[in-house]
Write a protein that binds this DNA or RNA. Structure first.
Lengths: 195, 195
DNA sequence: GCATCTGCCTAAAACCTTTAGGCAAATGCC
DNA sequence: GGCATTTGCCTAAAGGTTTTAGGCAGATGC
């Protein structure tokens, strides 16, 4: 009976790999046990239950994503920061679709409050420092940015933009250009013209 | 042995109700059988399998959503159409979270091509007729609109904007104002200033 | 060298999915 | 109306996932 040397952290890492390979939805305690070559019940010494496993994978993904975003943001400001930050999300989702899906997992409020999710919010606000927005506009802008990033990336991941012209990269660039322009002129929405 | 009068369509409708009550993820053939007061195996005369059930609920949701959007769009143009269309999505998601989640269910390509999903795409393009965009900008704009609508609604549904000032409705209105302004000035992104 | 602890095991119950085969009610035909 | 067929729901059963309980052996500590 050779010991496999399992820990909750290692299981979360293996679970994250599994998520990228078979999809976050398909990650089960059973599948994870098969992957690490151990009987199912053995995992319950390390994991409280199935939701606990998913939560750990989600936290891992949120942290990885926040680390990469922080790296990308270092030394950048304005549109440069905006684009670098956005690209981190998109690239991460494409390289690690299962982990990205995990990052969307609905955590209970206390867990969420202690997660890297708060770093994400802070970094989004940091980007907006380059655009000079006061509250409550800053919050509106945070929500809009989050919506576009998450919305675009998840639609792209769902295959929405694939295999049809123009290239998705082109639309992404245009979306970021548009956001930048929007943030620079935030205060001047202009009246709706009557054509 | 009283017959319950089940059909695939009726099961999809009951499944949709169930999704709104317990969440789309939790809709199982078993739960549906309990709800309609029938043994589990009986449903397999009407449904091919569990995925088939979810697919039918998804198609139903897509169609309901498309019907409402078409109603909202009738007789409107420009920003008026944009806001009405967007509100349909947001209101539907808040009134029927399970169905909205179902509408996100990944259909296989053939099913998707035959679904009401294509009407959604057509309607989005119809809105853009009020903004005078040529290809490929129209496609870029379709993708951006879809991203903002879906992104905002799903973040709001996930509880992202709840219980924190300012009100989510306010941010939504500002987001739509911003989109409208963006679409009106699509061709003028303007150069990035060096501060 | 022995006691304890830890890590993985077997066993088992509960639930979900899916298939196979049966019986009775509804339907259609003469 | 009587009979055959079809239809609709049933029981039975196998396979998979989740979770708990209890056991045994290897690692750790004095």
């Amino acid at each position: 009976m050779v010991r496999a040397g399992l820990t909750a952290d290692r299981l979360a890492r293996v679970g994250a790999e599994l998520a990228d390979e078979i999809g976050f939805e398909q990650v089960t305690v059973s599948a994870l046990a098969r992957r690490v070559g151990v009987k199912v019940a053995s995992l319950y010494s390390h994991l409280a239950n199935s939701r606990d496993l998913k939560t750990r994978i989600a936290l891992l993904a949120l942290e990885e994503l926040a680390d990469r975003a922080a790296d990308a943001l270092a030394g950048r400001a304005g549109k440069d920061a905006l684009v670098a930050f956005a690209d981190v999300y998109r690239d991460y989702a494409r390289a690690h679709p299962g982990r990205y899906a995990a990052a969307q997992f609905r955590l209970d409020p206390e867990t969420a409050a202690a997660s890297a999710g708060v770093r994400h919010a802070q970094m989004t606000r940091a980007i907006l420092r380059g655009y000079d927005l006061a509250e409550p506009d800053q919050t509106h802008a945070v929500r809009l940015l989050g919506s576009v990033f998450h919305g675009y990336v998840s639609l792209e991941l769902a295959g929405g933009f694939s295999h049809s012209a123009p290239d998705s990269q082109e639309s992404w660039t245009r979306a970021l250009d548009a956001l930048d322009a929007l943030l620079r002129n935030w205060r001047a929405p202009g009246p709706s013209p009557s054509p």
